[in-house]
Write a protein that binds this DNA or RNA. Structure first.
Length: 286
DNA sequence: TAGACGTGGTT
DNA sequence: TAACCAAGTCT
């Protein structure tokens, strides 16, 4: 299966900015942070701007958190921006401004988990590493296990499944990893897989089984309207848009439920996404 | 370990 | 239209 994925990817890979020659491991790390739970189309312009502005970890670490959060814009989950900022500081001071190239050092960085660490190894350093994201888990669930979808993560088993698909050679394995993700992203999609365009259809266990429907547990629907996440987003939007610290009244206007608003404002302060000045006004953190 | 954590496009 | 989905991590 790896050979099929390899040939298909070489012929059909999307031209994404962070895949272009010359992208540094730092550029890859930035892209992976931004792509956590966020679609490619929304990441592209922000990533381009980011790399021009902050081409190295140390350059980025020197920026203020307010500048970082404004540059992050409405990418979502802004705590990722803060974690990337903290990770850059560690890289600059403890790793000589070079993104680590071993799993343990990478996973020790804030905001870097099992997926991101291996993605950096594979796409930043051309190394053989089982890269397991939601796309790859779906591809493996179908093509290897014949299931309709992936179901809950089985971390160790997922890593082993993907590891078994990778060729020995580092450079080739890295491309296969990119190919498996690409396959899940553009062909073996969650809702309406384009099996007619699939390079592994001849060896796909799901296809062979007659494409049975997924029968495992469904992840609970994640609401948004009315949640603290929405309120935090509203409050942060006010702070991002303001050039000067804002009065509490400006934040009060962003959400009518006072108790929820206060709770969310407090949580933003605790998370380091906002701060209160001595005069009582609020702003993005310095 | 289940749930929190942003945002917006698609079906 | 409401629900689903998008290159996860942390607690």
């Amino acid at each position: 299966m790896d050979g099929l994925v390899l040939d298909w990817f070489r012929a059909h890979a999307r031209d994404l900015p962070w895949r272009r020659p010359g992208t540094t491991p730092w550029g890859v790390l930035v892209s992976e942070f931004m792509l956590q739970q966020t679609p490619v189309a929304r990441v592209e312009p922000i990533w381009l701007d980011w790399m021009t502005r902050w081409p190295t970890p140390s350059a980025f670490a020197a920026a203020s958190r307010a500048d970082v959060l404004r540059a992050w814009g409405k990418l979502g989950y802004p705590r990722r921006a803060l974690r990337l900022h903290a990770a850059a500081a560690v890289i600059a001071t403890e790793h000589g401004d070079a993104v680590p190239s071993d799993v343990d050092a990478l996973e020790a960085l804030p905001g870097v988990g099992s997926y991101t660490a291996r993605a950096v190894l594979a796409f930043g350093y051309g190394r053989r590493a089982p890269v397991v994201d939601t796309n790859v888990r779906r591809v493996v669930a179908r093509a290897v296990h014949g299931a309709g979808d992936a179901g809950p993560a089985r971390t160790r088993a997922d890593l082993a499944d993907v590891d078994a698909l990778l060729p020995d050679d580092d450079a080739t394995a890295a491309v296969v990893s990119a190919g498996l993700m690409e396959l899940g992203a553009v062909v073996c999609t969650a809702r309406a897989p384009r099996c007619g365009d699939c390079p592994v259809i001849a060896v796909c266990a799901w296809q062979a089984a007659g494409r049975p429907a997924y029968d495992g547990p469904r992840k609970p629907a994640q609401g948004f309207a009315g949640t603290d996440r929405q309120v935090r987003g509203r409050l942060l939007d006010v702070l991002r848009a303001a050039t000067d610290p804002v009065e509490r009244a400006a934040l009060d206007a962003a959400w009518s439920d006072a108790a929820q608003r206060d709770r969310c404002l407090h949580s933003l302060l605790v998370d380091g996404l906002a701060e209160q000045h001595d005069d009582g006004r609020f702003a993005l953190p310095a």
